[in-house]
Every structure is written in C-alpha cells, then in structure tokens.
Simulated scan of single mutants.
Amino acid sequence: MVKPLIHPNWERAPDGVTDGYSLEMTAKDIESLRAAAALMPVDTPVAVTFLPGEEPAARVAATRAVRDLGFEPMPHFSARRITSQAEFEDYLQAVVHEAGVKRCFVVAGDPPEPQGPFFDTSALIATGAFERAGIKAIGIGGHPEGHPNMNAAQCWQVLEAKVAEIERRGMAPLIVTQFSFDPDAVLAWLEELRAHGIDAPVRVGIPGPAGIKTLLRFAARCGVGASASVMKKYGISITNLIGNAGPDKLVDTFAARLGEEHGPVRLHFYPFGGLVRTVEWIAAYAKA
C-alpha cells in the first residue's frame, strides 16, 4: 500500500476543520492567488483547473505561480478535452519540469464525446505517463449526490477500480468530491465509502462565499442538489435570492460531526471566481 502524499500534515489530526484545506484556481487567477498568499499556510494544495478555450501555456504559468508562492500545485487533466497523446504528455512534462508537480487530478470532462483518444480518466491513468513522470498522487472525483450517467452500483464499481489501479501503479489515490450544500448526503456517502473498503483520503468540496444567484447557477451547471429543503439546511431561503452566502453552517456541521468512521477527510474549497474572498473567509473562520 502506498502511503498517501497529499498534504505534509495529513498524518496528524487537524487542529480545526479548515486545517490542511485545499482550493481551486483557474489560469486567470494568478494575481488573485498572489493577493491571497499571505493568508494561506505554506504548502496549501492548489488545484489548477482545465477549462475550455485556455492555452496550455496559461495553465503551466498558473501551476508555476502556485509553486513559486510556496504552495503545492495540483493541475487538472480533462480527458475528453485532450486532443492527442502528445498534447497530454507535453502538458504533463511541462508542469513537472517547470513547477515540480508531484500530484495531478484527472476528470473525464464535460464533452459527451472525446476530442482525442481519451474517453475517461481511466484511459489517462492506463497510459502509465503519470508514474513515468514521477507523479506520486492522483486525484479522482467523488459524487456524494450521485452521477448523472451512472447508477449507485456503477459509481462504486468505477471508484473502487480507479483506486486499485492508481495504487497498483505505485501512486497514492485521493478522492475529491463535487461541492455540495447537503452535509447529511456527504457524511452518509463517506460512511458508505469506508464500508466499501476504500480508505483513500477524501477532500470534501465546499462552495466558497458567493452571491446566492451565483451559487445556484453553479449548482445547476454541476448537477448539485439545491432543493428548498437542502438550501434551508445550508442557510439559504430560495425565496430570497438577494445577497451573499458563506458556507458557515455547512462547515460547522462537518466540524461537529466528522469522526473516525469517516476516515481521513479535509476540505476543498471552490471559489467560483472569488479566490481572495474565499481565502479571507477561511482565515476568519479558522481564527473564530
């Protein structure tokens, strides 16, 4: 069994629920990351997303900026958006050589049909390129509220197979969930995950503070449950769409209820374009 290389302090119990958090950025967020850097702990994992319409050089520059600022870069690889084996390996080699990348995150991507030879994340992992490049950890997606194209049994089968394949190739698996407004669904999923014998570390997706309309728009785009009852649990009435909302109640619930039965868990923040605001919120929450 490979010992997970996910965060320098992963082995010890966190001081608080936000301890050891990670977050996402896009290639356009370099200046925002610089502005937030003073509030972030050294070695904070920062995922660099793989969005359509971006130049690979922009993603490489963002990944390099993460490293230069003292954080741990984790670039995304979107399987169906990669047009060739050469494009995949060129990008992988670039982030390894220019930013010292040791961990990557793989997603299938939004297009229903692949734009190149890779239909899904398993196809990327199967190339062997990650371990050849010296990558130590691979992040894969988790879906506490289900997957639009798979039933529950298929989701567990696919997840178990990916975790086993990553470990077989000498790398450490990490599961990162889609953001959710429903802590009950996430906690139940974590218990089921451990019941399936999957002991990989999990980063639970948390929506960063944002306008209520923005939060609901991202929820609709990402297939996240946002019913009236769920949003009430989160602290939002969907009859009032004016103003901003932070994840205070959600994070409070995880702080109170996460236990040994849920295995190793940390939080992963989705800033929704407000990286500085998200980091400021985390710092204030941790201090409080």
Rank of each mutant, 00 (worst) to 15 (best):
L124C: 06
F179L: 08
S84M: 10
G116L: 11
M171F: 05
H143D: 13
A108N: 06
E131K: 00
A99W: 02
D90K: 10
V107T: 11
F130L: 13
C155L: 14
E167Q: 11
R80M: 09
F130T: 01
Q85W: 12
N149T: 15
M74S: 10
G100E: 01
A126N: 13
E72V: 11
P73E: 02
G146T: 14
T127A: 03
A86F: 12
G70I: 12
E145A: 09
R80Q: 03
I135D: 03
Q115E: 15
R169P: 09
A153M: 14
V101Q: 00
E98P: 02
G128A: 07
P173V: 06
F179I: 00
T127E: 05
F130R: 03
F119H: 15
T121W: 01
M150R: 15
A164I: 05
T127Q: 10
L92Q: 08
K102Q: 07
P148H: 10
P73A: 00
R168C: 12
S78Q: 03
R169A: 04
A129M: 02
H143Y: 14
E131G: 05
F77V: 05
A108S: 15
G134M: 09
E167Y: 06
V106Q: 06
A153G: 14
A123E: 09
N151D: 15
G142V: 02
N149G: 14
F119D: 15
H147K: 07
A172S: 15
F105L: 13
H97W: 09
V176M: 03
A108I: 02
A99D: 01
I125D: 03
G139W: 00
A123K: 03
R80D: 07
G100N: 03
S84E: 10
G142P: 01
I82E: 04
S84Y: 04
P117Q: 06
R132A: 13
G146N: 07
R168S: 14
A86T: 13
P144N: 05
R132I: 04
Q154L: 14
W156R: 04
E167K: 04
K136C: 14
H76Q: 10
F105V: 05
E160Y: 04
V95W: 03
G116W: 02
E72P: 04
Q93E: 12
L159S: 08
K136H: 12
A164H: 02
H147Q: 08
I135T: 11
I140L: 10
A86N: 09
E160P: 10
V96K: 00
A133S: 07
K162M: 06
A86P: 02
F105W: 08
M171S: 10
P117G: 08
A152Q: 14
G116D: 02
T83D: 12
A137V: 04
Q93K: 15
G109W: 03
F88Q: 03
P148M: 08
Q157L: 12
E165G: 01
E131V: 11
R103I: 09
F105E: 05
D90N: 14
M150F: 12
F118R: 13
R132S: 12
E89C: 07
A152K: 14
I175Q: 01
C155S: 13
G141T: 13
L92W: 00
F77N: 10
Q157H: 12
A133R: 05
S84R: 11
D110L: 11
P111H: 09
I82K: 01
A86I: 10
G139Y: 06
A129F: 01
F130G: 01
P111I: 07
G134C: 10
I82R: 01
V107K: 07
C104I: 13
G70R: 01
